[in-house]
Amino acid sequence: MLAYTVKRLFTLIPTLLAASILVFLFVHLIPGDPAAILLGDTATPEEIAQLSAEMGFDRPLWIQYFLWLGNVLQGDLGISIFFREPVLAVIGSGAETSILLASMTMFWIILIGLPIGVLSATKHGTWVDQITSSGAMLAASMPTFWLGLYLIMIFSVTLGWFPSSGFPSLSDDGGITNLRYLILPSLTLAAPNAALIVRLVRASMLDVAREDHVRTARAKGLHPARVTIKHVFRNALIAVAAAFGFTFAALISEAVVTETVFSLPGIGRLVVQSILRRDYPVIQGVILVIVVLYMIINLLVDLAYARLDPRVSLK
């Protein structure tokens, strides 16, 4: 397992390098002097000249790339134009919100998506199945921000059960109870993704149920529920795990929207605000961080997949 993990880490390197080139080129695709772009409108000519020299903007592009990559590897992603702070610190300040939001969302997806998917598959062809699987498709057809706005209107404005926006850190007053700020956002974010998991669990369970080994399990005289869980659901999880990487990509994308709807101080909203503020160093930094994160998650998904399916060779 360890050897496999290390090997997979190495295969990530070329993709990471290629992605980093794209992220690096991003600033150069914007028309204008890159140093002026990175420093914003208020920069003085001296500052621009200084950064130009530092980053080697007068030298060939590939040297600039390696200078930039060297900085990145040391954790130096540049200085935010808007905050006047290191980009890494700006991203770090949104990390708590985003990580908590993602974890709570995953919690809902598993808590809601898996059981409904199993129900839909076991009641295949009945009205229960029709309602759950069309309901799931409907949930996946909703714009997340629209759902979020209505959840705010119903549960915050009308009923007053949950706060409508913002998120004070867990280390602020209120401690762990501050998580209530994330309940509506995480439900909003979970809805379309849980819906996809419902459809996926249903489809792959129906596929597995047709396989010969399920007939063998029934021939053992096992209770039907045991056959469903231990033999059908367990095997269907392999396909579900393989799709979890996509779920995470969707989650990252939709978090951008959800954090904006609920005004959460997370990385997603930071992206949007930085784009509107033309804070290029932050945009560049956040994209790099998210791409690395996404690759790590895909690696974890692959490892989980290998654990679930003994046929996957770990060599």
Partner: peptide
């Protein structure tokens, strides 16, 4: 009652040995 007999006093083997066992 039927399940108590299956796999116990009456058992079956199938045509497809390659797929009749659960791969996981």
């Amino acid at each position: 009652e039927r399940r108590a007999i299956m796999g116990n006093r009456m058992a079956m083997i199938f045509q497809e040995p390659m797929t009749s066992l659960n791969p996981v």
